[in-house]
Design a protein around this nucleic acid. Structure first.
Lengths: 345, 345
DNA sequence: TGGCCTTTTGTAATCGGTCTCAAAGTGGTA
DNA sequence: TACCACTTTGAGACCGATTACAAAAGGCCA
């Protein structure tokens, strides 16, 4: 029997057992071990058993770095989100992780902090790891990022937005439409003087634009707005509304770019003796867990973040596993949204 | 000049440029390219420039999979947390990501869902990627996980807990002590009849144990407790307290295993016409953003999640970059905690 | 110009797997 | 027994980088 070369213990460093170690213990060739583990049908019952025993005896765990190099597929998916501090993304991250795991992929997490340049740096670092797929948040990337993405030939899914010119697949909804519908909703409930508290990220900006555009069509041109820095926080919402009130802004409804901000706005209103919604109505976005159970409950826009994650991950898997014979469909999914009427507006 | 072998376009698949492509364009050998990029000092000015130009021309991005195989270091760090839905972990995840990025490491995210078996599966998948380091949440792992961790010889940092028998490094605080101090705090404020709303994860259980132990020492043996499923949510806290009240539980202070639950408990109390803290006091844990700004503001236990993340990541980097000459110190960091007195208790 | 040391460049082997293709083993049929 | 088809196994090249070591180039002095 041929002896497979034993790895020399470089620098005395004890290393994890390799396929060759397993092969030696099992008394077969390395390639047989590889096949026994990855394509059991190609190997005889007897060989499979020998390999199985050797694997257990050595405590062998395959080295996916080496395997990935050979197969040119890392089974790694890059996942870039602005933040996980916002529960709405947390849910998407969870769903993506879960769905990818089902198909044997692992997520490489990157946090862009709502910043295109940071996203670009992240993307560069991540492309060096040769992921099999990439999931991005939003459509707003630097030119360099776009060029790299296109050049990389890697399947990509953009999420949490909808637009004309996705890099590849797209799973999301129209923020502009959300804004318009929020305006229509508030107008429909009879409110007439509006203020806005919004975070300064690009998607929130699109919603605000839809909101003010729709109001403008209804003849309302002026919407006092306080833009706060991301990430949106309860305390920032509270102080932002306080500032507006201190500036003498009069309004009967406040548009907020997230429930977190809405919650803060409501708290500030209540602390000043304003009744919600009688004196001032408040509407948020995201339909976070607390929106329904707060006092008063918060009117909001429900987005199914888990859905986005699941659909995005599935679309990506479809692309990653597609071969030339059956190319995957061009994916563009509008997951929609729905306005949740509650007590606050 | 020697011609470096051109990679054949296997299956017509256009592939990313490799080091060899760059070498050919630059008119030098592959190893010179490698050195120009990684150890610029070892290469002449002229060669460096040629390589630089060739890199730009080809749009070359190094393949860290191949590099990792050769150097036996992936520059990948496995990060396993129960969930990112809980903002308290989100902050740690952010800090870890940020700190690791500074040192050129990338985080591989795994969500264990507060479940040891799920953590074990995740760990197996992740060890196959040969991370340079591992950051875990908590000390509670399956036997198989522990065996694998020890066998792997990979630097490990456990976080968010403190205990006698860490696998390697440990950065956290004592949950038992937190529970005791919460009890002491409430007793000190004159409360006498207690109830508890707690999530069913192992660290929350330790806090509750500390809480009830301390009360027992003070002669209070009975603490009606409602244990809710993870993840803790506002709505679950609200309904959990509602259930306790419906069962006729009388109490003047409610212990909650998180601010999220506390917030729900307070809301339920207010909705039933109970005044907080006059009729019932509530204390939470985590000092989340909204605790300070809520109405009433929520007494809580402040943990610096970002600190934990930063310190843990730094400790891990120290271990990963240590050589045999100067081994890193055995790390065991107690980041402590502090009780934040607010209006709710 | 020659000799020696230092800097720079290059060749070959290696990391731990998988792929290709050929060889060996198996079984059925003539 | 000989032949053929099919299953199972293995040898060797390869993935894209890095490491070890050797060769070439450059600098300095006699």
């Amino acid at each position: 029997m041929k002896k497979y070369k034993q790895r020399k213990d470089l620098k005395n460093k004890p290393k994890a057992p390799t396929l060759i170690d397993v092969a030696r213990v099992a008394g077969v060739s390395p390639i047989t071990v590889s096949r026994a583990l990855n394509q059991p049908d190609m190997v005889s019952e007897k060989a499979r058993e020998k390999v199985q025993k050797a694997v257990e005896k050595t405590g062998y765990l395959p080295n996916l770095v080496a395997g990935g190099l050979a197969t040119r597929s890392s089974h790694l998916v890059a996942l870039i989100v602005p933040t996980v501090a916002n529960p709405i993304f947390a849910e998407t991250v969870r769903a993506i992780n879960e769905t990818l795991a089902e198909y044997g992929y692992q997520a490489l997490l990157g946090l862009s902090g709502y910043n295109r340049d940071q996203e670009q740096d992240l993307l560069e670092a991540i492309l060096c790891r040769r992921p099999d797929g990439i999931i991005l948040t939003g459509l707003d990337h630097t030119d360099i990022s776009l060029r790299r993405l296109h050049a990389s030939q890697i399947p990509i899914v953009e999420t949490w937005d909808l637009g004309d010119d996705p890099v590849d697949a797209l799973v999301g909804f129209s923020h502009y439409d959300v804004g318009k519908e929020m305006a229509a909703y508030l107008l429909g409930r009879g409110y007439q003087r509006f203020a806005a508290v919004t975070a300064d990220d690009s998607r929130a900006a699109k919603r605000l634009e839809g909101f003010t555009d729709h109001l403008a069509e209804a003849g309302i041109k002026h919407v006092p707005t306080n833009v706060i820095q991301t990430p949106a926080r309860f305390s920032r919402g509270r102080s932002a509304f306080g500032t507006l009130l201190d500036q003498g802004v009069k309004c009967d409804a406040v548009y907020c770019s997230s429930d977190t901000l809405a919650h803060g706005v409501i708290t500030e209103a209540l602390s000043r003796g304003l009744r919600v919604p009688e004196d001032v109505a408040v509407i948020g976005f995201g339909d976070l867990d607390f929106a329904e159970a707060s006092l008063p409950s918060i009117s909001s826009v429900k987005i199914n973040g888990a859905d986005i994650g699941r659909v995005a991950a599935q679309a990506l898997v479809a692309k990653m596993t597609a071969d030339d014979n059956d190319p995957p469909p061009q994916t563009l999914v509008d997951v929609g949204f729905s306005i949740m009427q509650r007590d606050s507006a």
